[in-house]
Amino acid sequence: MSDNINKVPTMAEMAAKGESPEVLFWVGCAGSFDDRYKKVTVAFIKILNKVGISYAVLGEEETCTGDPARRAGNEFLFQMQAVANIQVLDGYGIKKIVTACPHCFNTIKNEYPELGGNYEVIHHSTFLQQLINEGKVGLKGGGEFKGRKITYHDSCYLGRANNIYEAPREVLQALDAELVEMKSCRTKGLCCGAGGAQMFKDAEPGNKEINIERTEEALKTGANIIAAGCPFCMTMMRDGVKAKEKEENVEVLDLAELIAKNEGL
C-alpha cells in the first residue's frame, strides 16, 4: 500500500531515477483539460495510489492520440500525432498502458500497431475489474451505493468497437448496487452522439439531439446514477440530464469515481 494517496509520478521523474513503472496511465485530453473529467482522472489516480501499483503519467509530454482527426477524415494529422506519440512511448520503453478514455484506448490499442506502436492497452473498466477480482478494491459490502439503482451507458468505442460489455458491469456489481439496463444496451447500445468527432462540431440538422434520446432512455430506468466510462459520453449525458432538468436527482458518474467514493477516497 502506498503511503501517499495524492502523489502523481511522471515518466520523466521515474526515468531520471532509472526506474520504469509497470503501467503508464494515459490521461487523455479530456482527462487533462475538461473540468468535469479531471475529477475522474484524480479519482483514478487515488485508486492507483491506494492499491500501490507502480505507474506513472506522461504529464506535459502527452498529446492527442489523433482519434478525432482520423474520424473526421484528416489522416495526415492523425498519423503525425500517432507517430510522435509512439516515439515518446517507445522512448520510455512503455509496455503497458491504462486509460480512462475509450477513444484513446481504441486508437492506441488498434491503430498504433500498424504505425509501429505495440503496447498492451487496457481500459480503466477492465483494470478496475481486475483489481476487484484480485480483492484489492470493492466488495466491502454496505458501501455508499448499496442497493442504489445504477444504469450503465455503453460507450460505442468500448462496446461494439472492442467488445467490452461485461467489465464495466462487473465493476458496478462490486458496489452491491442494483444494476438496471436501458432499452438499448450492450451490442444494441445507443450512442451518446459524440463519437466520430461529433464532439467537436454541432449536430447536423434533425429533429432531436442524440444525447436527449439517450438520456430519455436512461431516465426511464428510474436510476438515479448513470454510470459512464468515457469522457465524451460523460459530457453528453450530463448535458442531457441538465436539458431534462433532472440534475437534482440524477448524477452522471464515471466507474472510477464510483469505486473511489465506495473506497472512501
Partner: peptide, 9 residues
C-alpha cells in the same frame, strides 16, 4: 456523412 458518429450500430 457528417452526421455519422462512427458508433458501429
Amino acid at each position: 456523412i457528417n452526421a455519422c458518429t462512427s458508433c458501429n450500430a
